[in-house]
């Protein structure tokens, strides 16, 4: 019959249409703004309306999610920021669009390089969010952020991030990437232990 194919197609559309109401009923009005429902709604078993009501609710970001990099610091007993970065320059060398600039400190007396950065800048208008800097950093000092809400009205003044803007505490890192953090801390502890053993033995 001519037109049967179209009718069959419209049947599919109708099915989708009905499914949305069916799923609403199933959740008894608790379909939105509900963590549990969001997980089901966005998972592989999702039926019905697929929308995530951003900004009120946000998609759960996977641990590996990456936007722009940030520098990890730890607070020491005086409340000073202790950067893990040693200004070794690997991140700036591995960066594909070359958007990382690092200024290494030098000892004012000897003129020798000191393993810490005076300034660390990333031009986020060039950064391609590839994650190489974080991947190849031997000191776990630079990591990829989860914060994607970065829109601004101006870029000339703000889009080259300096060290201050890039800094985030290690607790923040632990909160966005718990598994990676736990694994790395373990490795660091093991390394420190073997180093200590070597020093004593």
């Amino acid at each position: 019959m001519y037109g049967w194919g179209i009718l069959k197609g419209l049947g599919v559309t109708l099915k989708h249409f009905v499914e949305t109401f069916w799923d609403d009923l199933r959740w008894l009005g608790k379909r939105y703004f509900n963590e549990e429902a969001l997980a089901v709604r966005q998972g592989t078993k999702a039926r019905g309306i697929f929308t995530v009501q951003y900004p009120e609710e946000k998609l759960t970001l996977p641990e590996e999610f990456r936007t722009i990099p940030f520098l990890v610091y730890e607070l020491d007993e005086h409340g000073e920021k202790q950067y893990r970065c040693t200004a070794c320059g690997i991140c700036s060398k591995v960066c594909p669009p070359q958007c990382i600039w690092i200024q290494r400190s030098t000892d004012p007396e000897t003129g020798r390089p000191v393993p810490s950065p005076i300034e660390f800048s990333i031009d986020i208008d060039m950064c391609m969010n590839c994650g190489f800097c974080a991947e190849f950093c031997p000191f776990d000092a630079i990591k990829m952020d989860h914060d994607f809400e970065l829109s601004s009205y101006d870029r000339q003044a703000t889009h080259i991030y300096n060290k201050e803007q890039l800094s985030k505490p290690v607790s923040y890192y632990a909160s966005i990437r718990p598994t990676n953090y736990a694994r790395e801390e373990e490795a660091r502890a093991a390394k420190a232990k073997s180093k200590a053993e070597k020093a004593t033995g």
Binding site: S92, C95, W101, I102, D123
Partner: peptide, 15 residues
């Protein structure tokens, strides 16, 4: 060829 020398160890960000 990359990496460019002016990025490190004395890199001052410019456009």
């Amino acid at each position: 060829a990359k990496p460019f020398d002016i990025r490190w160890p004395d890199g001052k960000a410019i456009r």
